[in-house]
Write a protein that binds this DNA or RNA. Structure first.
Lengths: 238, 238
DNA sequence: CAAGGTAGGTGTACGCCGTACACCTGTCAA
DNA sequence: TTGACAGGTGTACGGCGTACACCTACCTTG
């Protein structure tokens, strides 16, 4: 009887409930805690029940990615291409900062999901409307790479690390250890300079948002120059 | 006796032998076939034997990464910063193309290995010698991101996919499916344009090497402009 | 030369993982 | 009333990383 009550109390599963529970679990406990078993437990259900709503774990990840991509702001209308793209990418970045596991998940899938294709397609549309040739638009998309989706492969980047191991403690300031400083003097110089010139930045002494926008604008400015020059592929026949 | 003979015939394990067997296995069978058990089998040894030479699987991956990074050409001497950096990055790219699993492995580690730190440090050194301030060099390193190591996060890129599932068949030309073309018209336009304007490019109609160098030069040119202008961080106080 | 420490390979076992497959049960259409 | 079916359950399998106890061949040292 108690069991029956519990069964009744529980809202029935659905693909959407599974996906949003998965997103929440990954947000809170890190992507590596997202197992079918853990997810099922969160939903008060036996692991195999999930398979009535998602085909397998890969499809679950695809669904989670689409949830995240759906949170990116739609393009601003009636603005020049550069502003539209810049703002959309910065919105994507905000979304990915809310879901630090997502960039990792996107990278490790090997097919684009429909939602991502839709997003990219709309980006190309913005470029075309801004006067880019198909050719140039194509190369621009490649040049932007993952930045298009609001993240850049930073090699070793604290916020992405967070997606791996849940709420790992923010890690003490961890100034460049002396031995490493001797071995990597140039990196040490950067590390100390970055942490000194802005005392308000704690811990890792470098402002990710600034770096992201620096690279984004560097690219956008270069791209704008190519567009104004009427750049066209001088690709050798090869 | 036969067993004894086998034991004798077999060269003794060593960290180097373990690492290079692991690299070979990942090259040939794909990174997802690299399990401690498979690796041990290739070496004619029981899985736990590996743990006498590497602490655990993560440390194995770190070691493999260092092997790969060690294959990158040293910097050319006596050339201007731009050429030194460009050539070194293109060398890194060649290495990573030989080991398609490596970019994935590098991305999924969360600490830089000493070899990578050494590589990055020497890159910063090149910039500094080329007249960059520590500040600008820092931002440049961020802007280059993973391109510094010869790969860019391309979102969905055939060569990196190969690192996942061994020698997956090269996949038929796979022209943009008609239904998708309707849904993503701009992507379809790019896909057809790219595969038409160079008949010699087979299958996926887009020249990865060209795209890589396009983005690389776009960045390098923008960076060169900042350097000439004596760019300095106008980072807002906050 | 005997003794014993040690480096390195072995065997077993544990707890995770994804998921195949058979089953049960409540609901609703015919 | 019946029976199909959607959706939750239980059991089981093969794979994974690796802890831990062991065994054995060698080298050092008295």
């Amino acid at each position: 009887m108690a069991e029956q009550a519990e069964t009744l109390r529980r809202a029935p599963l659905s693909r959407d409930r599974v996906l949003s529970a998965a997103v929440t679990l990954a947000d809170e406990a890190g992507i590596e805690s997202l197992s079918m078993r853990n997810l099922a437990q969160d939903l008060g259900v036996v692991p195999m029940a999930l398979y009535k709503h998602v085909a397998n774990k890969n499809e679950l990840l695809d669904g989670m990615i689409d949830v995240v991509v759906g949170e990116i702001d739609p393009p601003v209308l009636d603005a020049d291409w550069k502003r539209v793209i810049r703002e959309r990418i910065l919105s994507a970045r905000e979304v990915l900062l809310r879901h630090p596991w997502a960039s990792i998940a996107i990278e490790s899938r090997n097919e684009a999901t429909p939602a991502i294709l839709g997003y990219l397609d709309s980006m190309v549309g913005t470029l075309r409307k801004g006067g880019f040739s198909t050719d140039l638009a194509h190369h621009v998309m490649h040049a932007m790479g993952s930045r298009m989706l609001g993240f850049s492969q930073e090699l070793f980047d604290a916020s992405r690390r967070a997606g791996r191991s849940g709420m790992a403690e923010p890690e003490p300031p961890a100034a460049f250890p002396a031995e490493a400083a001797a071995q990597f003097p140039h990196l040490a110089a950067i590390a100390t300079a970055a942490s000194h010139d802005d005392a308000s930045v704690v811990g890792q002494g470098c402002d990710d948002q600034f770096e992201f926008e620096f690279a984004l604008d560097l690219l956008l400015d270069g791209i704008e120059r190519l567009r104004r020059q009427g750049w066209t592929s001088s690709r050798p026949p090869r």
